[in-house]
């Protein structure tokens, strides 16, 4: 790790530190994406092709369709919360460490930016924003 040249993107990309960061992010977001997409599509397909299942009364006038629909809202909120907590605890510290090492090695400074995309650089600030 101490041998990594932090100003060289390819060297950083090969480093264990970056590979760990990449794995930490992907091993969380990929499975979760698959899960919520399948859960959503299953819900849509059942609502379209098995409306009688959705019409099963659960209590009062509330049927399974409303409950499963609201469950989509609940899982969306839960996944959001879970990701934020995971990102704060696991992803951010790794990313911050690496960024600091790279910043002090001078990687990705303005001239790189200008080179790769030919950006006209934005100049100085323009007063505070409320």
């Amino acid at each position: 790790m101490s041998t990594t040249d932090y100003s060289d993107f390819q060297a950083v990309q090969r480093s264990d530190q970056f590979q760990t960061l990449r794995r930490t992010q992907r091993s969380f977001v990929f499975p979760l994406t698959v899960v919520f997409l399948i859960w959503y599509l299953a819900f849509v397909i059942v609502a379209a092709f098995a409306p009688e299942f959705m019409a099963i009364q659960v209590f009062g006038n509330i049927n399974l369709g409303i409950i499963l629909g609201l469950a989509q809202f609940v899982t969306t909120f839960i996944i959001t919360g879970a990701y934020v907590s995971y990102a704060n605890r696991k992803i951010d510290p790794l990313a911050t460490d690496l960024r600091k090492s790279m910043d002090s090695a001078g990687a990705g400074i303005e001239e790189e930016l200008t080179d790769n995309a030919g950006y006209a650089t934005s100049d100085q600030g323009s007063g505070e924003q409320s």
Binding site: L21, R22, Q124, G127
Partner: peptide, 24 residues
């Protein structure tokens, strides 16, 4: 360009070189 791919991947996850707020 493999070096650009490396740069993009590292930047996307670490935020190195990303432009910050201009107002301070």
């Amino acid at each position: 360009d493999v070096s650009k791919q490396a740069e993009m991947e590292v930047r996307s996850l670490t935020g190195v070189g990303a432009e910050e707020a201009t107002d301070h």
